[in-house]
């Protein structure tokens, strides 16, 4: 009697289990008693990569294949080229038989590369920080329930919709030494004229200023969304708790914008790394104003002007690693918060 009960129980359990997989949306496994090679492999894959790995493949595999080939494959190929000595327009193409790190040694000893790396670093950090600060201040002001709030938001966001080429062209005019509007305005209060684009020590900051003008609207919108998510009673509780307006923002509101800050800064940093278009359009050529040469411009110049393909690839890999260093912590942060 007891045996019968025990068997009934185990039967029930196994039925339960198979019901469970079906309820999950999975396909009930027909070949459960005698799994063949295909069945075994599939079950092994499912165990390793999660339920329905094989069954769901038609949905994600084509896109995965395209991405793998044209994005990650290209990066990998670029890495391989950077290990060759390929240059000039040889018909033979790169020689893959002799791979070494010669180009990397050359890059680390090249003052141009070091200089461009420093400029890239200053541009990324300087641009991101100023844009975040300006964007935050704009967001805090716009969020105070002002009149024409939507109009202001649109006005501040509009520069973002312009292409880098347009921005570069009219900042070129504005920074003009003789009749640019910047020098004219400064002239009325007795300053300047200043050679914004010709002076090596300030040209990078002039570029950062122009880029900040273009992107602080974006930072503002991200921060506004963050501010909207903070309930009003948080402000009120801080006020009743005796905090002054400045303290209220500093201790209660701004710390809650951490998420907005992180996502905005990742986007801004990536934009800063891509500032190539802006610098290219500024001079309509591969040679940006002295003092603004960044890795992106150097890379393109080496590759397409000097046809140093391998060397250009090496610089590209250095740039890629820098981008990875920025993105990596963000991905880890998102992963920890279960957003990936």
């Amino acid at each position: 009697m007891r045996d019968i009960f025990a068997r009934r129980k185990s039967d029930d359990e196994s039925t339960d289990r198979s019901d469970e997989t079906r309820a999950d949306g999975g396909v009930a496994r027909a070949g459960r008693e005698k799994p063949g090679v295909v069945g075994r492999t599939r079950r092994a894959l499912d165990r390793r990569f999660g339920e329905d790995f094989v069954e769901s493949a038609p949905f994600w595999f084509p896109a995965f294949l395209l991405m793998a080939l044209f994005v990650y494959g290209a990066i990998l190929w670029n890495l391989v080229i950077s290990l060759t000595d390929y240059e000039g327009f040889g018909l033979a193409g790169p020689d893959y038989s002799n791979l070494d790190f010669e180009m990397y040694v050359r890059a680390f000893n090249d003052s141009n590369v070091i200089n461009a790396s420093i400029n890239t670093f200053v541009l990324v950090i300087g641009f991101t920080l100023t844009t975040l600060v300006v964007g935050l201040l704009l967001a805090l002001l716009v969020d105070r329930g002002i009149r024409f709030e939507n109009t202001f938001r649109t006005i501040y966001l509009l520069p973002m919709s312009l292409s880098f080429v347009v921005t570069a062209q009219f900042w070129l005019w504005m920074y003009n030494y003789d009749n640019g509007v910047v020098n004219i305005v400064l002239g009325t209060i007795g300053l300047g004229p200043i050679d914004w684009l010709g002076n090596q020590s300030i040209v990078l900051w002039a570029v950062i200023f122009a880029l900040t003008w273009q992107f602080s609207g974006y930072a503002m919108v991200v921060y506004l969304a963050g501010l909207r998510a903070i309930p009003d009673d948080n402000y009120e509780a801080a006020m009743v708790d005796g905090a002054s307006t400045v303290k209220m923002y500093w201790r209660v509101i701004i710390p809650q914008l951490k998420g907005a800050t992180i996502s905005a800064s990742v986007v801004l940093m990536v934009f800063a790394l891509k500032a190539f278009d802006f610098l290219y359009a500024l001079v309509s050529g591969y040679r940006p104003p002295a003092g603004t040469d960044i890795l992106a411009t150097l890379m393109v110049r080496e590759a397409y002007q000097n046809t140093n393909w391998a060397y250009g690839s090496t610089i590209a890999i250095i740039l890629f690693v820098m981008a990875l260093l920025i993105i990596g912590p963000y991905l880890i942060y998102q992963f920890r918060r279960d957003n990936l």
């Binding site: 009673d233 509780a237 905090a243 303290k247």
Partner: peptide
């Protein structure tokens, strides 16, 4: 001192910090 319907605790602070905030300010 006010107690809000939604409690209005500061989400980025610990309980300790939440409670000392008013005294500090």
């Amino acid at each position: 001192a006010m107690v809000f319907q939604s409690y209005a605790l500061y989400p980025h602070m610990t309980v300790q910090e939440n409670m000392s905030f008013g005294l500090e300010e």
